[in-house]
Structures are given as C-alpha cells and as structure tokens.
Design a protein around this nucleic acid. Structure first.
Lengths: 200, 200, 200, 200
DNA sequence: CATGAATGAGATTTCATTCAT
DNA sequence: TATGAATGAAATCTCATTCAT
C-alpha cells in the first residue's frame, strides 16, 4: 500500500506548510505575509506550495480551518468534562489562554480573521465562530437543565461568554500581561460570569 | 490673521482626508487600501496627501488617534453622567453599538488595529486601549466608593467589561444581528456584568 | 491651453511605446515578448506602460490597430489613385512589399495575429482583414464598372488578391529574397491576377 | 526480435505524443501550450515526454516535420495524378481545404510556424515550404512542357500558387466560411490562376 | 501649495525540466 | 523504462512615493 504512505507524506507536508504559514500570517497579516518567505522557512521551493494549495488565499483558508479544528477540540475538552459550572468556565478561560500562548500564531490569525478588516475571510471565520458558540451553548443548556444557571437567552449568553473570554485573553496579551498573570484571573472571570460584580 | 485661517484650512483638509481614509481602510484593511483611491475620493491630488501625512502608515495612525478621540468622548459621556451602575453599563454598551453602527468604518478600523494581526499598529492601538480602560476604571472606582460594586481588582474588571462589550458588539455584527436586536441585549449584558448568570 | 500640449505629449508617448512594443512583439511573438524589455527599450519605467495601456494584451491590440491604420492608408493610396487596373495591382503589391520592408515589425505582427495560432487576437485581426478586403473590393467594383475585369464574385476575388499578395510577400521574405527581387515580380503577380498563366 | 518490437513501440508512442501535442499547440500556440497537459492527454507521465523528445522545442519541431510529411503526401497526390492543369489546380486547392479541415490542428500549426512571429521555427518551416514549392514547380514544368501554360519564371509562379491557395484557405476559415463554401470556390481559384480576371 | 506622471521594488503565480524512485 | 513531486527562473502587474511643474 504505497498509496497510504504517499498520502501520509502529502498530509505531513501540508501540515508543515500550514504551520509555517501560520507563523508568517500571524506575524504580518495576510497581505504582508510573503509566499516566498513561507516557502523558505518551510524549507521547500516556492512552487511546491502551489502543489498543495491553489493559491495564497486558499492556503490562508486551509490554515484557518486547521486552526479551528484544534481550537474546537480544546474548547470541547474544557467544557465537556465533568465539574461545576464555575470549574468549567475556568477551564474554558484557561483553554483560551493556553491556545493564545502555546499557539500564539494560530490564535492571532484566527482572531484577526474574525475581527480584522479583511472581509474576504469573514465568511469563513464566522462559520468557525458559530461552531464555538454552539459548543458553549451546549454546555449552558446542560447547566441550565441542572439548575446551575438561569438563562433567558442561551444564544446571547454564549456570545457574551465567548466574547468576554477571547477578547480578554487577547487584550491582556496585548497589554503585556504574562501567562501566569492572565491565568490567575481565571476564577475572577468565571466568577463575574456567574455572579457579577454587584456588591450584594 | 491669514495665519489662523490657513491653519484652520489645513486642519479641515486633514480631517477631510482622514475621513475618506477611514472609509477605505475600514473597507479594505491597511494593505489593500489604496492611496490613489483615498486621494480620489477626497477630491485632491495624490501628492497632496503627502503634504499632510508623512506616509501611508502615518496617515493610518493619525486616523486611529482621531477615531480614538471620538470614541473616548462617547465612552466618557456614557459613563460620566449620573445614573445607577446598571444604567451606566447599559449606556456604555449602547455607546459601543452606536459607534459600531454610525461610524462602522472607524469602529472596524480601530478594532482591527487592536486585535488584527498587523503588529505595526498594535503599540498605538494599545495606548488607546489604556485610555479606554482608564475611563472605565474611573467609573468603577466611583461605583466602588459608593458601594454599588465589590471590586477586588479594578484593572482586571475594567478589562473584562471593555472586552465583553466591544467584542460582543463586533461579534454580533459579524453574525448579522441588526442594530435593534443588539441594543435589546443591553440590559442583559449589563445584568450579567452586575449579577452574573448563576441561578441564585 | 496646456491640456492640448499634454494630450500631444501623451499621444507621442503612446506611439513611442507602441513602436518599441511592435519591435519586440515582431521579434518574439506575444508570449515571449517581455514588458520589462519593452519598457527598457522605450527608455521608460516598467510601471509607466501601465499608465498608457491596461495590460499586455491591450498594448498588443492597440499596436495592432495602430498598424492597421498605417496599412489601410497605404493600401488605399495604392488603389485609389488613377491608372489602369494592371498599374493599380502592381502598386498594391509594391505597397505590401514596402510595408513588409520598411515596417517589417508591424507587418509581421499583423500577419501573425491573423494567421498565427493565438486565437486571442484573431477576432480583432479579422476585423482588420475585412477592412482590407472592403478596400480591395471597392476597387474591383470600380474596375468592373469600367469593364476592365469580369468578376462574378467580387468578395471571393478580393480575398484571392489579398491572400496572394500578402502571403507572397511574406513567403518571399521568409525565403530570403531581397526587396529588389521581390519588387521585380510585381508585374508578374499583377499579370497573373489579370491574365493567368494559361498559354493562350 | 524484441528489438524490432520495442522500436515499433517506441515509434508508436512518439506518434501518439506528437498527435496530442499538435492538438495543444494548435489550440494554444507554442508558448501557451503546456507540457503537463500534453502528457495528461497522451495518458503518460510528464517525464516520459523527455524520454522521447529533448525538450519542448524539439517536440514542436518533430511535430512540424511530421505534419509536413502528411501535407506533402497530400499535395503530391493532388498534383501527380493525371488530368488537365485546371483539374490539378482544383485538386491542389481541395487538398489544402481538406488539410485545413480534417487536420485543422496540423494545418494551423504549420501555417503559424511559417507566417507566425516565432522566428525560432521559421528556419524549419522554410525548409518545408521549399519542399512544397518544389512539388508545385515540378508540376508546372510538366505542364509547361505540355504547352498548357506559359511560364517565364516557374519558381515565382510556384510561390504565387502556393501563397494564394494556402493563404486563401486560411483566410476563408478565419472569415468563417464553411468547408462547402470554400470548396465551391475551387474552380474560381484555379480559373484565376489560369486565366486571370481581365475581361477579355 | 497642489498636482499627477513616472518610477521600480516587490509580490504572486506558472511551468519546463530534473531526478530519485 | 516510466513517473510525477519538486524546483526556481521569469513574467505580469500594483502602488507608495517622488518631484518637476
């Protein structure tokens, strides 16, 4: 079965290219990122990239989907396992922190595709956001069923949680907070989501 | 006093250019936006832009600062006036919605500078974010002094509020929610910030 | 009226570029001809060409039309003036020889657009051919009215004359015949057209 | 005798490749034609072509010579058989029409090599043209000996006939005339060659 | 001051050719 | 012998910036 081996090789190369691409795209954005440089850093010829991806745009989109898979896996893992709602929210937050830290490139790329100006990728990024929201909504429904939360509008709440956490992590990074410092705020974030900041 | 008149003219032209630039930058992002087009839409010569701004980058940054001024004014207005903390938060949220709607261009540009990938502008955007945070923190301190909220870490809480609101509005827009629909969620957002979603 | 001067300058530059382009296109064909080289030989910057022509293809087509104008003028001059039909045909032949010689580039380019494989330009080249044919047909009609020729199908005859003369000149050139040698065959060509080669 | 079989196989593959190449070259011209596509349509690997032809250019030239063989056979058949000079010329014309129709690819490729701009192939194409001319000249000599034609300069006359017929067929095709319409003009063409268009 | 023609660096993409398998 | 993945030169076109008018 040489076919399988080849297919594996091909997939490995694809991943390799995507990883380098993510690094460049994250550092420079879609436009400034340079196919030549990506090829060079991937240690392959310029033309080779075009054997794996139709063009720059498709490379970017492939990378986006790839990243989304990873993120979804992490998010699901954080939410799916047992534990109190407080714990789950903390884990969700920590998952975002970890993604932002360990895969800073991917995270930035994803965020900027979503909130960035380049509308060309907003459609795709929006799809991914809906997946994230669905995952969070699913957890909220469970918690609601268990009576842990009161939740008039699950969709709206999901969006609040996603917005808060993603954006918080991103902003904290931008502000120069260390991973440790950010992680320490996990329980505060979860607490605010659950109990708010009103004094009583 | 022709000097003053000239100065006023100059400033007026600057603003005019910035406004058109914002439109293009918001539509296409920094790289895709085209100086030629900006000049054309501003009804001036290509070279003229370079009499007012050193280069494309400086034009973008000037625009960023300009927008930030407007936003700060709106944010301060929302927070400064009297009312309960719930009302203030709702007004803050509505201010973001309005900015995102009425000045969609500016808002998008600002967001993408902040969360976007192009690090070239992150430094400047971060400065602006600190201004926003300071404004929110100031309100929180007031409310804390009044006993309206319990707030262990004002900085962290400010960041939560800013992240949540900005990102929520942006995401809701991206998801295609209408202005009206978004505005209707103002009280929910404020309520979550104040009381959380825990059932009791 | 600075506008007029500018317009003249612009037109002069256009012509200048077209002339250099014709040289390159004739030497190398559409695909092998190189915009960089054309610019260099025209003594202008690469980008400047794109201020005058939308793209390579449009440059080629503009050149084609330009050439066709010159050729039509020469063909009309050869046919329009007085003289016997024999003289006119000889003049037509000589016109082709002269075009092929004095403006070898243009002539080759035109021929190859017509008979060459690159279908992309066949439509345009066909239009031009129809103009040529119409001019020849007009002369044939006149001669027919005068009883100089018997002509069952003027269209068909025009095509015969055009094909014969253009192709003869081109082939003779390809075979390495000198201008003088080719010109000496003018009366034979005209004679064949008029009287054929049958012995009686 | 496996040697012979192999040799036959090899020759068969060569022909097969050439046939597909002709199709592509005719459709797209030398430059736009794509070795990948030719290989694909021939149902063989890209690299295999290089086992049969040194490079793209040699493939093109081989194809050219191949086509010329076919054309020469057809031309000789049209001229060699008995019949009046009028009949022979008509047959020659019909042979060109048929070649242009039945083997449109080959015919176009050959014409464009001859009249096209790409000088790289002109030398080879010229050789082929000389073969054509020699064949026609041979017939003219025969006819001259028989007193059917008066022919001061056989070479020149051969060129006239070849130019007229090839170019006429090509142009008529370009102008959109159907095969039938073109064939109907055979006797007119032959007649013009023999008797001209002068009224008496 | 204002202009816009001119520039050329730089980016994407194609494809003939090689060569390890 | 046959293959096709990999290569990288080369070509088109864009656009920020300059500068003579």
């Amino acid at each position: 079965m040489p076919k399988v081996v080849d297919e594996q090789m091909r997939e490995a190369t694809r991943r390799h290219i995507i990883r380098q691409a993510a690094s460049e795209f994250a550092r420079l954005g879609f436009d400034q990122a340079n196919i030549n440089m990506i090829a060079e850093q991937a240690g392959i010829g310029k033309g080779t990239i075009y054997l794996y991806f139709e063009n720059k745009r498709e490379l970017f989109l492939s990378m986006l989907r790839y990243i989304a898979q990873d993120h979804l896996v992490a998010i699901r893992a954080a939410l799916a396992t047992d534990g109190s709602i407080q714990q789950r929210l903390e884990r969700l937050f920590c998952a975002f922190v970890q993604l932002a830290q360990e895969e800073r490139d991917s995270f930035n790329v994803h965020m900027s595709a979503l909130y960035g100006v380049n509308r060309a990728f907003q459609a795709e990024a929006t799809k991914l956001m809906r997946d994230y929201l669905a995952t969070i909504a699913f957890m909220l429904e469970q918690s609601h069923a268990r009576g842990e939360i009161r939740c008039a509008n699950i969709e709206s709440t999901s969006l609040m949680i996603l917005s808060l956490m993603e954006s918080f992590v991103l902003s904290a990074n931008v502000l120069g907070q260390s991973e440790q410092v950010i992680l320490q705020q996990a329980n505060k974030v979860a607490e605010m989501v659950l109990h708010g900041i009103a004094s009583t």
